[in-house]
Computed example of a mutant assay.
Amino acid sequence: MKTIQKMYEHLNWANKRILETLQSIEGEIHDEVRLFSHLLLAEKVWITRLHGLDSSLLPIWLEGNINICAELVRQNEESLTTFISNVTNADLDKLIVYTNSKGTEFKNSVHDILTHVALHGQYHRGQINSRLRIDSFEPVNIDFITFVR
Score class of each variant (00 low, 15 high):
M1N: 10
K2C: 02
T3C: 04
T3R: 08
T3L: 11
I4N: 06
E9T: 03
H10W: 15
L11K: 13
L11H: 14
N12C: 13
W13Q: 09
N15T: 02
L19Y: 11
S24P: 01
I25K: 09
I29N: 14
I29C: 10
H30P: 05
H30E: 15
E32R: 04
E32V: 04
E32G: 14
R34H: 04
F36P: 07
F36I: 05
S37V: 01
L39T: 05
L40G: 01
L41Q: 11
A42K: 00
A42D: 01
K44S: 02
L50I: 10
H51T: 09
L53H: 13
L53I: 04
D54C: 09
S55T: 01
L57D: 12
L58Q: 13
L58E: 08
P59I: 01
W61E: 02
W61T: 00
W61G: 00
E63C: 00
I66E: 09
N67A: 13
I68D: 11
C69Q: 06
A70E: 15
V73Y: 01
R74H: 12
E77S: 12
E77F: 03
S79G: 06
L80E: 06
L80V: 05
T81R: 14
T82Q: 14
F83S: 01
S85R: 14
S85F: 15
N89C: 04
A90P: 12
A90G: 06
A90D: 14
D91C: 08
D91W: 00
D91P: 15
L92W: 02
D93V: 06
T99P: 05
T99S: 12
S101A: 10
G103V: 01
G103T: 02
G103C: 08
K107Q: 15
K107C: 10
K107V: 05
K107H: 07
N108Y: 08
V110I: 14
H111G: 03
I113Y: 03
L114C: 04
T115A: 06
L119W: 13
G121F: 10
G121C: 11
Q127W: 09
Q127H: 15
I128L: 04
S130W: 00
R131P: 00
D135S: 15
D135C: 08
D135T: 03
F137L: 07
E138Q: 14
E138T: 08
E138V: 05
P139G: 13
V140H: 10
N141G: 06
F144Q: 06
F144H: 04
I145T: 12
I145P: 03
I145G: 08
I145R: 11
